[in-house]
Every structure is written in C-alpha cells, then in structure tokens.
C-alpha cells in the first residue's frame, strides 16, 4: 500500500511522543484499542484548570503507520484547544487531513475515541475533585 506524504511525515517524525503524569489531576489519559486488533493508542492531555485550554498533549501508539500518524496529528490539533473544541474533532477531519484510504478509516476512529477518552478521564477526575471540595465546604 502506498502512503500519502502526510502519513509518512507524521510516521517518520511523530509529534508529541511520550507520557504525561497520569496521576496528575490536570492530566486526562485515554487508552483505546486492543493488542489483538493490532492497534492501541494512549493519548494524554494536560488541561489548564482555569482556562480549560489544553496546554500539552502526548501519545504512544501501537499500530500501523496510519494509526501512528492519526494520533500524532490528533495531539498537534489538541494543543491550544478548549475542551469543547477538542470534543468537536471528528475522525473525518483526520481522514481528510491525512487522505486515509477506506481500509485505514478505523485508525482515525480510534484517534477520535482516544481524544474523547482522555478528556473524559480528565473531566471524571475533576468532577470527583469538585465533589470532594464541595463536601469539605459543607462540612466547614
């Protein structure tokens, strides 16, 4: 299969590889896919708690070149976006940007899932925190 230039560029020079501290309250982690299916993405976002803007995004991906390119592109797009803007990213945007062929569309779906999972994780953590502070406030 021939790859598009953009896929090759992201594959050869992936952006934002690495890990953020998954225990930090400002970090949301999404882990999607399965080794048996041939692709697993871990995508993390670090969010500013007052502005709700994504300050940093990192990924690690086990998968084909298109899966790696999709996650690399996703982290590039995430930085500087608000939570709402990030949640609005669609897999079709990734397909279009990377010109993915039909057989590789699932890579873009996985990237969208990873974004949603990471932000979902952040929101869950922070709701718990909010609930925690409210409980403390009531007590006081």
């Amino acid at each position: 299969m021939a790859y598009t230039k953009k896929v090759i560029e992201h594959f050869e020079n992936p952006k934002n590889i690495g890990s953020l501290d998954k225990n930090s309250l400002n970090v949301g982690t999404g882990l999607v896919g399965a080794p048996e299916c041939g692709d697993v993405m871990k995508l993390q976002v670090e969010i500013d708690e007052t502005t709700h803007i994504i300050k940093d995004a990192k990924f690690k991906t086990f998968g084909c070149g298109s899966a790696i390119a999709s996650s690399s592109l996703a982290t590039e797009w995430l930085k500087g976006k608000t939570i709402d803007q990030a949640m609005a990213i669609r897999n079709t945007d990734i397909v279009e940007e990377l010109s993915l062929p039909p057989i590789k569309i699932h890579c873009s779906v996985l990237a969208e899932d990873a974004i949603k999972a990471a932000i979902g994780d952040y929101l869950k953590k922070n709701e718990a925190k909010k609930a925690g502070t409210e409980a403390v406030a009531v007590k006081a």
């Binding site: 890990s19 882990l31 080794p35 697993v40 993405m41 871990k42 991906t61 086990f62």
Partner: peptide, 8 residues
C-alpha cells in the same frame, strides 16, 4: 517500542 504504549 519507544512509541509503543504496550512496551511501556
């Protein structure tokens, strides 16, 4: 492997 969440 540096890029693989599974290896990590």
């Amino acid at each position: 492997r540096d890029l693989s969440p599974l290896y990590e």
